[in-house]
């Protein structure tokens, strides 16, 4: 097979990747008040890594991101379930959330909600599942 020179796409990817990742994280944190959330954020992160996969080969991506996506999925499920259990600990029903306004040194007045933790679980599961699937189908020789 002829060796293709895909330097343009690889270089572009290196720049674009971080923009997408940053945007996906922004969307994730933005979810509680504006369009976005764990699901879209997760998908967007997966899209960024998929771009990486398209530009480079599987081994390279594996080296850059030494993550087992199955474990990522599992930890996402664990976070989501534990967040639900949190409600039980404080005597409420399963998956009851709470929120409060905290003054943080750098960010100032910030709203923190336990729903965000649940969303983090969703985020992990979406990233983990999407990438497991892509890795399996694409990486199957």
């Amino acid at each position: 097979m002829m060796k293709l020179n895909d330097i343009v796409i690889q270089t572009t990817t290196k720049f674009v990747l971080f923009i997408i990742l940053a945007f996906s994280i922004f969307i994730f944190f933005n979810g509680h008040h504006h369009p976005g959330g764990g699901f879209i954020g997760g998908l967007m992160t997966s899209a960024a890594i998929t771009l990486l996969l398209l530009a480079f080969d599987f081994e390279t991506v594996k080296r850059i991101l030494p993550i087992d996506f199955k474990i990522l999925t599992a930890s996402g499920m664990l976070i989501a379930t534990l967040t639900g259990m949190g409600g039980l600990v404080f005597g409420g029903p399963f998956l009851s959330h709470t929120f409060g306004y905290v003054h943080l040194p750098f960010f100032g007045e910030v709203e923190l909600a336990t729903a965000l933790l649940f969303d983090l679980g969703v985020y992990f599961v979406v990233v983990g599942s999407a990438l497991t699937i892509i890795e399996m189908i694409g990486g199957d020789q």
């Binding site: 008040h33 959330g37 909600a113 729903a115 983990g128």
Partner: peptide, 28 residues
């Protein structure tokens, strides 16, 4: 009650979080 302005997301993670929990299980 849930401290969020994005109604869709609040429904997904708070009011109807149980559905979401099992949807991510489906994905898994």
């Amino acid at each position: 009650e849930a401290g969020g302005n994005n109604m869709v997301n609040v429904i997904l993670v708070d009011f109807r979080g149980f559905d979401t929990l099992f949807e991510i299980l489906v994905l898994t």
